[in-house]
Computed example of a mutant assay.
Amino acid sequence: MAQVLFLGGLGRSGTTLVERLLGELPGICALGEVVHLWQRDLRDDERCGCGSRFSGCTFWQRVGERAFGGWANVDVDRVHTLRDGVERTRHIPRLASAAQPAAQVREYASYYSRVYAAAAEVSGAKLVVDSSKHSALAHVLRAAGDIDLRVVHVVRDARGVAYSWTKRVARPETDGADEMTRYSPGRSALLWNAHNAAFGLLARRGVPVRRIRYEEFLADPRAAIIRLADFAGLAPRPEDLEFLRPGYADLRVGHSAAGNPMRFTVGRLPLRHDDAWMRALPPAQRRLVGAMCGPMLRAYGYPLNPQEAR
C-alpha cells in the first residue's frame, strides 16, 4: 500500500515550497502536481522539474512502465472524462457524503494510486508527496483502497493569496510563451473560502489532515518540517535537515511533474516571509478580500487588520 502525503490548499499558498523542502528528506519522493500530469506531461510533453522533457525523463519513464506498462497505454481522453465527471469543486458534497464511492470515482482514483505505487517503487521511497492542491481530488482519493492517505492543508492569508494571483508569472515549462493563470481579488477570495472549507470537510470524513499556516512555516521551517515528517510517520535525523540553513535551503534536482516555477530551483533558495501584499494590494481590494474571507481568516488565527499581522 502506497503511503501518500497530499498537499492541499488554494494555489499561491506555499504548497510548492513545502513540497520542495519535504522532498529533501530521505525516504520521501516529491512528485509535484500529479493532477496535471495527464495533460501537461503526457499530452504536451512539458518539462519535468529536472529540466528534461517528460518524454526524456528517465524517472518518469520508469514510473510509466511500472504503472501502466508504458505511458502510451494510458487513455488520456478517458482520464479527462473521468476528471470532468467527478473531480470538480461542485462535486465535493456528493463525494463527501457517499457511503460507497461510485465506480467512476474509484476508476479515476486508481490512475493516481498506480502512479503513486510505481513512483515509490522506482525511487525506493517510503512516502510520496503529491502537491496537486485540488480539494476535490483529495476527496476522490478517499475512494482508493490501496493508498494510505494523509493530507497537509496549507493555508495562507487570503489577502496575500489574492495579491499573488494578480501578478504576471511566466511558465518556464513553455519557455516563457505562456503565463500562469491570474484571478481578480474577488474571484480568488471565493476560491479561498471554497477550497479551505473543503479540506475541513475532508477531516470530518475521517482522513488525517494537518493544517499549517504558510506564515508560521516560514517563521521556523526546520520545526515545521519535523512536525510534518512526524505526521507522515517519518523521523528525520539532525543530519537529514542540514539542507536547511538560517534564511535559505539548499535544494537538489527534483522530478516535479507540474506546478509552480519554484520546482525548477536547484541550489540556494531564500526562505523569507513575503508580505508585499500589505503594501502592494490596493486598500479597496484588501478590504474586499478581508470582508469576504473574514470568518475563516479569524478561524485560522489571522488578524483582520493587516497591520496587526506584522
Rank of each mutant, 00 (worst) to 15 (best):
S184V: 02
A2I: 05
A276M: 05
R182G: 07
Q39G: 12
I28T: 08
V154Q: 01
L25V: 10
R268S: 05
L31K: 10
L7M: 03
G49T: 11
G9F: 06
P303M: 02
L297M: 14
A109F: 01
E242T: 15
Q285N: 12
K126S: 15
P236W: 02
A229S: 04
V140E: 06
M180P: 05
S135N: 07
S123Y: 09
A224E: 08
G32A: 04
I226H: 05
P295C: 04
A144N: 09
Q39K: 14
H134N: 15
R106N: 05
P208Y: 06
G14D: 04
L31R: 07
L288P: 07
R168Y: 02
R90I: 12
L281Q: 00
D84L: 14
H36L: 14
G200V: 04
E107S: 00
T15K: 07
L21W: 01
A189R: 11
L228D: 07
G200T: 03
R43W: 06
R150T: 07
T81W: 06
A291Y: 13
V35R: 14
L202V: 03
R279N: 09
E24P: 04
I28K: 09
Q285G: 04
A299G: 11
R90N: 06
G27H: 12
R40I: 12
A189E: 04
Y183A: 12
A67H: 07
G27R: 13
F264N: 11
E24A: 09
G69L: 07
R88G: 08
G85Q: 08
H134P: 08
T81S: 14
R210H: 13
D230L: 14
M278D: 07
H36N: 15
N305Y: 04
A258P: 10
L127T: 12
E242S: 15
R310Q: 14
A109M: 05
A299S: 13
C48Y: 02
R12T: 09
L25S: 06
A309P: 01
C57H: 00
I226E: 10
R279E: 11
W60F: 02
K167R: 15
V86Q: 00
R204L: 10
V34F: 03
S132A: 12
E308R: 14
V115E: 00
H273Q: 15
V115R: 04
C50E: 07
V63E: 05
C50A: 10
D84Q: 14
C293M: 06
V115W: 02
N73V: 08
R156T: 09
N73Y: 03
L201M: 10
